[in-house]
Amino acid sequence: MAIALQSSMAALSLSSSSSFFGQRLLPTLSLSPPPTSVSSVEKACPIVMKIKRWERIECKPNSLPVLHKMHVKVGDTVKIIAGHEKGKIGEITEIFRHNSTVIVKDINLKTKHLKSREQGEPGKIVKIEAAIHSSNVMLYSKEQDVASRVGHKILEDGSRVRYLIKTGEIVDSVENWKRAIKDKGTEKEAKTT
């Protein structure tokens, strides 16, 4: 018995020349005969991962998120029509098209607790602007103090613009875009200094 045990251990010994670590394992031989039908082709089954309901994001076939069309743009003056900030007026500073939300300047402020970055520095409590869904905001006319839905029309020069349906006021104008770009540039300079 000892000889049989010694011979089996010698066959399984792990020396530095015959180490199996880091090498591929060979497939085990099965006793069942191989399938005889050649026409059966196995299709690769994609791995399906179940995620929570609130984590689902609608995606295109190339796995990028679907970007929603929105009736507002950066620099528009809007009025909040729903939520606890209802009735307030502000300017849009940022939009998120993948989930159709906007950030309005100085509206929907949330408290954020920040940890200290360096040793000895205390933590902070800061107020940040949280996102609002774009369906809860409506374009606002400062001249006539009225909120209105948005319409689209093509001008004589062929440019497509947005306008307020109640007042007929054109929202997309060159001056508004130049002002929004200039304001954005001054904010970046202020943050860097």
Results as ranks from 00 to 15, higher is better:
residue 96 F to N: 14
residue 94 E to T: 06
residue 152 H to L: 10
residue 66 V to W: 00
residue 121 E to F: 02
residue 190 A to W: 06
residue 181 I to Y: 11
residue 175 E to R: 09
residue 165 I to K: 15
residue 144 Q to I: 02
residue 78 V to D: 08
residue 75 G to W: 04
residue 152 H to E: 08
residue 123 G to H: 09
residue 99 N to D: 15
residue 189 E to Q: 09
residue 58 E to P: 00
residue 111 T to M: 13
residue 160 R to G: 05
residue 129 E to T: 15
residue 81 I to T: 15
residue 111 T to C: 12
residue 57 I to G: 02
residue 96 F to P: 00
residue 148 S to Q: 06
residue 156 E to N: 13
residue 140 Y to T: 06
residue 115 K to I: 06
residue 13 S to D: 09
residue 77 T to N: 04
residue 174 V to G: 00
residue 133 H to N: 15
residue 4 A to R: 10
residue 188 K to H: 12
residue 82 A to G: 06
residue 158 G to V: 07
residue 76 D to M: 01
residue 102 V to Y: 03
residue 43 K to M: 11
residue 175 E to W: 02
residue 166 K to L: 12
residue 33 P to A: 13
residue 121 E to N: 08
residue 161 V to K: 11
residue 188 K to L: 15
residue 125 I to A: 02
residue 84 H to D: 12
residue 150 V to W: 00
residue 111 T to S: 14
residue 69 K to R: 14
residue 110 K to R: 14
residue 43 K to G: 06
residue 108 N to S: 11
residue 133 H to M: 08
residue 78 V to E: 05
residue 179 R to M: 10
residue 184 K to D: 12
residue 134 S to K: 04
residue 127 K to C: 05
residue 125 I to F: 02
residue 128 I to T: 15
residue 123 G to D: 07
residue 163 Y to K: 06
residue 98 H to Q: 11
residue 64 L to T: 01
residue 156 E to Q: 14
residue 62 N to M: 03
residue 83 G to Y: 03
residue 173 S to G: 08
residue 68 H to V: 00
residue 20 F to E: 14
residue 82 A to I: 01
residue 34 P to C: 07
residue 93 T to Y: 06
residue 32 S to R: 13
residue 102 V to S: 01
residue 118 E to C: 08
residue 126 V to H: 09
residue 71 H to E: 00
residue 45 C to T: 13
residue 109 L to W: 02
residue 122 P to I: 05
residue 84 H to K: 15
residue 121 E to I: 09
residue 126 V to N: 09
residue 69 K to T: 03
residue 132 I to A: 05
residue 158 G to L: 08
residue 170 I to H: 01
residue 72 V to T: 02
residue 172 D to Y: 02
residue 84 H to I: 11
residue 89 I to E: 01
residue 29 L to R: 14
residue 49 M to K: 13
residue 103 I to Y: 02
residue 143 E to D: 13
residue 35 P to D: 04
residue 87 G to W: 03
residue 19 S to F: 03
